[in-house]
Nucleic acid binder design. Structure first.
Lengths: 230, 230
DNA sequence: AAAATGCTTCGGCCAGGACCGAAGCATCCC
DNA sequence: GGGATGCTTCGGTCCTGGCCGAAGCATTTT
């Protein structure tokens, strides 16, 4: 079965610690240079170069040449979703394994981070909870929809979710199980839009070099007063 | 980052061709013995035993001892979903790679197969298409719902989907991109129920030793007349 | 031009792990 | 009991692939 070979190729590509580290670093959707990726993976540039070449020719990454830099990013959202689902399984094991070693950097990640294109961590889960509690979103295991009240709420904070909808009248969002909180948060078109909007409006901002984000004072206010978090 | 190690462990576990083959064989949700799995992977029982032990201690598989047989199955749906998402990425690459080598066995798989707990392949996609065309299901990229007309349709063929719904009034189903057809089919609670019901009613039956299924004459009739396939 | 920076290619080292044959336990059957 | 059958453990071979140092290109800077 030729398919099996491709499957194994992709999985083993993600299965090397150094490459996994680099892929993780790219999970926030940005493009990073080869040297930056070498640093986060803790390997020399030569070694990283080899890894990146393999990932690129396999189609997991796309490379953009710019001057003497080469910017790497995940080739598609489906790669990010694959990463998420592997994390999902990996964190599931964690439950019955040695205690979670939580460093200070880890704490920031747990508090709030981006999950490729949407918000995750404690912040992501809190937002989802508040939206569900307020009747703005209905979530189930496999899918979710934004209610009419939800559409109104999003418009109030300056986000026109109605324009995200395709031919259908309904507005869907995808629940995404959080590996640290073990509860669903908002992904899909709505989650992506909310995350992007929050960055634009300055409600959150990225922390240098990680996927972690910080909630600004303005963001605290909006999330609490408009959405009802906490 | 300790998480990274777990991630890499899981991915590399899936990244070995022999193990990938065994995991694939288990994607229909059934439990298989060690020797059966050794055969599908094309390796000796000793080698398979080692692989299975690793997969089990890592938590990807659960083992059930029964007499002198040991039955192995995927530990959880999240493992199946991980497999799906890796297949997704792997088949994405296929687009720009050598032509798909389609053997006769592959043809059966493309026609109709189970994807862990729901129907995929040409059959799965056709069913989804027909349900959407008939206004029984609304599908978008991230999620889908069964309409009132859909609930009635499912009841007509003896499937009480209303009982699947949790606390919410709505009935969700998850779209799952098909690796052979490149189009979405029905997964999630509704997809699972439809697949199980079809097996019970004898509309489809499993082909020995693979994930492929055959549509029976009775099944052809039901799918065509009640759901409007083809 | 010359030097610095970012990245890649080459060559060689080394460890992890995939594989099988043989042997050892269990369990079931006669 | 004796003999199949299913599975595992052990020991040993072999090869893939990850890693780095050194050298080689390409681009930008001085």
């Amino acid at each position: 079965m030729a398919n099996n070979a491709r499957f194994a190729e992709v999985a083993s590509l993600a299965g090397d610690p150094a490459r996994a580290g680099m892929l993780h670093a790219l999970m926030d959707g940005r493009a990073l240079t080869a040297s930056e990726l070498a640093r986060v993976a803790g390997i020399t540039p030569q070694t990283a170069s080899g890894h990146l070449a393999r990932l690129a020719t396999a189609g997991l990454l796309t490379v953009e040449k710019q001057g003497r830099h080469r910017y790497h990013r995940l080739a598609s959202p489906s790669v990010a979703q694959m990463m998420e689902s592997i994390m999902q399984v990996a964190s599931g094991l964690e439950a019955m394994r040695p205690p979670p070693v939580t460093g200070p950097k880890d704490a920031a990640l747990r508090a709030a981070r981006t999950c490729y294109d949407h918000l995750a961590g404690h912040l992501g889960v809190s937002l989802a909870d508040a939206l569900v509690a307020g009747g703005h979103v209905e979530l189930m295991q496999d899918a979710g929809v934004v209610t009419d009240a939800g559409v109104a709420l999003f418009r109030r904070i300056g986000l026109d979710v109605a324009s995200l909808s395709g031919k259908t009248a309904r507005l869907f969002c995808r629940p995404c199980l959080d590996w640290s909180e073990r509860r669903p948060h908002l992904a899909g078109a709505v989650g992506r839009a909310l995350c992007a909007h929050s960055l634009e409006e300055g409600w959150i901002r990225r922390l240098e070099g990680t996927r972690a984000v910080a909630v600004t004072p303005k963001g605290h206010r909006v999330f609490r007063e408009a959405i009802g978090v906490r």
